[in-house]
């Protein structure tokens, strides 16, 4: 935790500078008869963020941060594993949506989590993996008329569209 605090402050400070530079693409000063330029609002917010990051960093330097001198790790091994499993599987699932669409990526995530992480029975896994996309389809595509991304699996849904829409 002791090292994480200043590292995060520096990363966020860099983001703040990036925001200020990006905002300056639009006028940040006063335009006569128009008021503040379009970039002024985000520019000064970026400046404020930068000040806050420096403030946090200085607090840490002076040993005033709650994490100063803390030898507790930012993430222990077990937490890191949980984090990587959860965030990683979600990332893979969202990536898969582009190729195989929501209706195949969703069961894939469920099978991975329920069966391999949670070690539940294949019966429960299969039931959830089958029911969830069906409910999702009827709720979004039929009731709300919102088409969810289907990637390369789109043609498989043409008969369903004909039937329900």
């Amino acid at each position: 935790m002791n090292r994480a605090e200043p590292v995060m402050a520096v990363i966020m400070a860099l983001c703040s500078i990036g925001l200020m530079v990006k905002s300056a693409e639009l006028p940040v000063g006063w335009i006569p008869d128009e008021g503040p330029g379009g970039g002024a609002f985000p520019f000064w917010l970026g400046a404020g963020m930068l000040v806050c990051c420096i403030w946090t960093f200085v607090k840490w330097l002076r040993g005033r941060s709650p994490y100063s001198g803390s030898d507790k790790p930012y993430m222990d091994r077990q937490t890191l594993m949980l984090f990587v499993t959860a965030a990683g599987s979600l990332t893979v699932m969202i990536g898969l949506i582009h190729f195989i669409g929501v209706y195949f990526a969703v069961p894939a995530l469920l099978v991975f989590y329920v069966r391999f992480v949670g070690r539940h029975s294949w019966w429960l896994t299969a039931a959830l993996a089958a029911a969830t996309p069906v409910v999702t389809f009827f709720f979004f595509e039929i009731a709300l008329r919102i088409t969810l991304p289907k990637g390369h699996t789109e043609p498989m849904f043409y008969p369903l569209y004909d039937m329900f829409l």
Partner: peptide, 24 residues
């Protein structure tokens, strides 16, 4: 069990986040 709850919430988040603008 959390191993069922977590992916279900993830799925709700993904489809819920997509629905308003329909943009990946």
């Amino acid at each position: 069990p959390f191993a069922i709850l977590a992916p279900m919430i993830f799925i709700l988040c993904v489809v819920g986040g997509y629905a308003p603008t329909q943009d990946m």
